[in-house]
Computed example of a mutant assay.
Amino acid sequence: MPPAISAEPKGEAIALDIVYEDDDLIVVNKPKGLVVHPAAGHEAGTLVNALIAHCGGSLSGIGGVCRPGIVHRLDKDTTGLMVAAKNDAAHKSLSAQFADHGRTGALRRGYLAFAWGLPNRPHGTVDAPIDRHPYAREKMAVRASGREAITHWEVRKAFNGRDGKPVAALLACQLETGRTHQIRVHLAHAGHPLMGDGVYGPHFKTKANQLGPSARTALDALGRQALHAYLLAIEHPRTGEILRWEAALPEDLLLLQTALAATE
C-alpha cells in the first residue's frame, strides 16, 4: 500500500514573489503552474505549503487545515495577485470583502485576458449564471440553474492577423462575482475564449493559422490560458486604509503580446 499522506500541509521552501506583507496579510504574485491549496492530485508543492514555510504558524485557521490563510483562489495556470490572511480577524474582514465583490466596499479585482477575436464594442458585461457542466464534471458552464455571475470587460488593444483583420484582443476584466473559471467561461460564452485555453476554447485552434510566425510560436510556448490577475485593491482589515497593487504581465504573456503586435 502507498504511504499515508498527512492531512495537515507541511511548509515547503518554495520561492514566493511577495508584493506586500505586514502582521495581518501577505500579497503574492502567483506564478503559473502553482496550485493554491492541497487537493487530490496536488497534496504538496502548493501556495499553501509555501506560505506555511514563510509565515510559520501565523496564518489564519478559519479556512481549515488544508487552506490556512486562503480567502480567494486563482486557477493553477492563472498568474497574478493573491492576498492571504495571517490571523483570524484579517481572514474575517477579507472574506467579507470578497463576498461583497466590491459592490459596497473597496475590493477590486482586475484581470488582463488575451482573447480570440475582437468584440464588436469597446466594453460590455457578461451577466450569465454559472454551474457545473452537465456532462464534463471538471468544467463549468453557463446554465440557467447556476449561480449569479457577472464579468465586466473592456478592450485594451486589438491585434490583427496575417490578413490584416482582427484576430485577437487584450481585454481588461473586472469581476463582480467570483465563480470558478468565471472569466474563462464568460468570455467563451461571449464567443471570445482565452488564447491557450484548452478547456473552454479548443475549437478555436484553427484561429492560430491566422497568426504570424512569431505569434504562433509564442502561443504554442504558452501552454496555458492567457489570463493574469494584474490588479488587486482591498481595505486593510486593521487600519481601514485602501491598499492597491498592480502586477505587470509575466514574461510569457509579454512575449505573446509583443508577438501579436508584430503581426499587425
Rank of each mutant, 00 (worst) to 15 (best):
G146M: 01
G146E: 10
A149K: 00
A149D: 05
I150F: 09
T151Y: 13
H152E: 14
E154C: 13
V155E: 01
K157G: 08
K157S: 12
K157C: 11
A158C: 02
F159G: 04
F159K: 00
F159H: 00
N160L: 15
N160M: 04
R162S: 08
G164C: 10
P166M: 08
A168V: 11
A168C: 01
L170K: 10
A172S: 14
C173A: 13
C173F: 11
C173K: 11
Q174R: 15
L175I: 15
E176D: 14
E176G: 10
T177V: 03
G178Y: 03
R179E: 10
T180G: 05
T180M: 07
Q182L: 05
Q182T: 06
I183R: 13
R184Q: 13
R184W: 09
H186P: 01
H186G: 14
L187V: 06
H189T: 01
H189Q: 02
H189G: 03
G191A: 07
G191Q: 08
H192G: 09
H192E: 07
H192A: 11
H192N: 15
H192T: 05
P193Q: 09
L194N: 02
L194E: 04
D197I: 12
V199F: 09
Y200D: 11
Y200M: 02
G201R: 01
P202K: 00
P202I: 11
P202C: 09
P202F: 12
H203L: 10
